[in-house]
Amino acid sequence: MRAFVTVFGTDRRGIIAQVSAFLNEKKINILDISQTIMEDQFAMVMKVDTEECREDLAAVAAEAAEMGERIGMSVHVQHEDIFNAMHRV
């Protein structure tokens, strides 16, 4: 299954490392990364493959949101279809 991981918050060192470590621990493979700084805010969108992940996406999404709170960032994990539905005809 393909999903998108989105990370927002105040920029600092180590954000990508922490998020990647979380994904690695969940056996989630990163396919593509787009990262930028928008008005001093760190914004990153990752396309990921959850094929090897043994937990279901709903559980990963909840854990990712908790992990985000711990590192002071807003972290969303969502099935790719919601973006396909909204942004592709």
Binding site: F4, T6, F8, S34, T36, A43, V45, I82, M86, H87
Partner: peptide
């Protein structure tokens, strides 16, 4: 791959 703005637009619609 979606443009960052598209992904952010969806999330802002939901969150804000």
């Amino acid at each position: 791959m979606f443009h960052t703005n598209e992904v952010i637009e969806t999330i802002e619609m939901i969150d804000k």
